[in-house]
Amino acid sequence: MQRTLVQEVTKGITIENPVFRLLLGLCPSLAVTTSLINGLGMGVAATFVLICSNGMLSLIRGIIPPKIRIPIYIIVIATFVSIMEMMMEVYTPALHKALGIFVPLIAVNCIIFARAEIFAGKNGVGRSMLDGLGAGLGFTLSLAILAGIREILGDGKLLGYPVMGQSYEPILLMILPAGGFFILGFLVAALKLYDLRAEAKKSVLLASNP
């Protein structure tokens, strides 16, 4: 069944959410999410690369010999990452410094390879770019959720503004590496619990009116 163009975008945010559903791109998801602004910056950077690489790879899918498609994916993706890195250094130097080595490491982000292999190699340019946009937005949203929770609990702030009041004693654990693991674990578990409940409900409904 052919998906509509809107569904091409939304599937990346919901059913094929890269972080919470497919468990891809976990390294940056945990490493840069100590504050919301870093999480959003990382998300936007990866989205840019996803849209460009998906579009480009879809455009050239006819002329790549299938045997050497992986090295070509690597070259194209790394090129866009380098371009994005230089842009970042010019326009957002503070963010570039805060994300550190995770900017060049976008080049080995599994989400981008997965979208190239699964989608861009088989679909048209427009659809591929929308798919990249969707996966990128899903990644950004996941990072924003993780980073928002960690910044509020661990620092009492959101985007640098105090939101929890003066008397709030931050839970330091949350901005430490350990807190990242905990929050991710519990969020994935919550999503799984939701799925299990929904499935149980469905089977009850099916059983009652076959």
């Binding site: 050497i68 090295p71 070509i72 070259i75 194209v76 790394a78 090129t79």
Partner: peptide
Amino acid sequence: VLGAFCVAA
């Protein structure tokens, strides 16, 4: 092909 891609990149 691979070389061409490297040059383009």
